[in-house]
């Protein structure tokens, strides 16, 4: 029997600000090398999401203007399906703007508040145009190791009682630059984060974690074959070194 996974890439044209495509390339390649076919469907504005059809869902980040259009479309055509999918164990990864829109709401520096999908018990507030933007290399602690990436966001995200942070900040800002949290997790299968870079190629452990979750749900217990990650690990280690070189804890 052929092993296959199906991924819904939400708004690849609109939400593609920081090399988000690298995440899809990474998942596809790491599946392929284990003989797993990853089928990617690109869903844009107006396209409906069939929750039962997918094993994985990905959404990236966008400019403000695009983010407004996506926020409206998410609520209109995809919110219900997203809730259903996450409840049924579909693996979800939301990066940066996508992460913000899957929280409860986003309050921009100016203009109307955007209602979010509410997958994560989290909300984001932009403290105003003069507030410092959180820009730079990030290293966070995750499951006994590290994740690396780059963050660039004005909004500060706060987690409610039913959300867990994805990781703890070692260097950088994370959710809000205050409480040391980065990202959010709901259940075992929905992940939100500010890290791009692209995120998954340099964090193969996280990529495999997503693939394993998706495989388990469809095929039962699985073990992934190890891959040659020498280059991935080197890029990861270099990113850790560059992010932590100057100061472990930045002045806030």
């Amino acid at each position: 029997m052929e092993t296959a996974l199906r991924l819904a890439h939400l708004y690849p044209k609109l939400m593609n600000l920081y090399g988000d495509r690298g995440n899809i390339l990474c998942l596809r390649r790491r599946c392929q090398q284990r003989g797993i076919t990853l089928v990617v469907d690109e869903l844009e504005l107006g396209d409906s999401l069939e929750p039962a059809a997918y094993d994985l869902i990905f959404i990236g980040g966008a400019q403000d203007r695009e983010q407004r259009r996506v926020a409206a479309d998410l609520l209109e055509t995809k919110a219900e399906a997203l809730h259903q999918a996450v409840a049924e164990g579909v693996v979800l990864l939301a990066v940066c703007g996508g992460y913000q829109l899957l929280g409860r709401y986003y309050r921009p520096a100016a203009g109307e508040e955007l209602a979010g999908v509410g997958i994560f018990d989290a909300w984001t507030v932009h403290p105003g145009p003069t507030a410092r933007r959180f820009i730079g290399n990030v290293v966070v602690r995750w499951q006994g190791g590290t994740l690396v990436g780059f963050e660039n966001h004005g909004g500060r995200t706060y987690l409610g009682p039913s959300a867990r942070p994805l990781a703890r900040v070692i260097a950088g800002f994370g959710n809000n630059g205050r409480d040391g949290s980065e990202g959010a997790v709901r259940g075992e299968n929905a992940f939100g984060t500010y890290l791009h870079g692209s995120l998954l190629p340099k964090n193969p452990r996280l990529a495999d974690h997503l693939i394993v979750q998706a495989l388990r749900r469809r095929y039962g217990e699985v073990e992934l074959a190890a891959l040659d990650d020498a280059l991935e690990e080197r890029a990861h280690a270099e990113a850790v070194r560059l992010a932590t070189k100057k100061a472990i804890f930045r002045k806030r």
Binding site: P201, L231, E238, A239
Partner: peptide, 22 residues
């Protein structure tokens, strides 16, 4: 460059025959 490893990783993903040197 300072991000040579990042670049090499991107090149690896592009499947350009030669294995990238760093």
């Amino acid at each position: 460059g300072r991000r040579a490893a990042d670049m090499a990783l991107r090149l690896k993903y592009a499947d350009i025959d030669a294995y990238p040197g760093i």
